[in-house]
Amino acid sequence: MYSEKVMDHFMNPRNVGEIENPDGVGQVGNAKCGDIMKIYLKIKDNVIVDIKFKTFGCGAAIATSSMATELVKGKTIDEALALTNKAVADALDGLPPIKMHCSVLAEEAIKAAIEDYKSKQLASSK
């Protein structure tokens, strides 16, 4: 039911872990629904220089987290904010229809982490 790419990113996920003193953290989903994604960012000169994730969820949840982090690593914040769930799913050679919500969660997790970074920037510049 999953593509080879999904299985690859599930079995060998990229960028798993945490970042100490991250510049931004985003967490979406909840345990009740069976999916939680947490993204950690390190940002320098508006560029995502490092990104890590931790995910509780199904195979697609883990694979989309991995792929989303790959897609935005080394990108500017604006480029990362333009990431869509469809781009994540496409990069994985597609997802079963009932798993598309995982790609939405991945997009939202990246955006939440960037929002967290922006609000911290705003707070420190005041």
């Binding site: 345990a31 939680i36 931790k54 995910t55 509780f56």
Partner: peptide, 8 residues
């Protein structure tokens, strides 16, 4: 579990 934010 090492991948899970709940475990951490």
């Amino acid at each position: 579990r090492n991948m899970s934010p709940l475990f951490a």
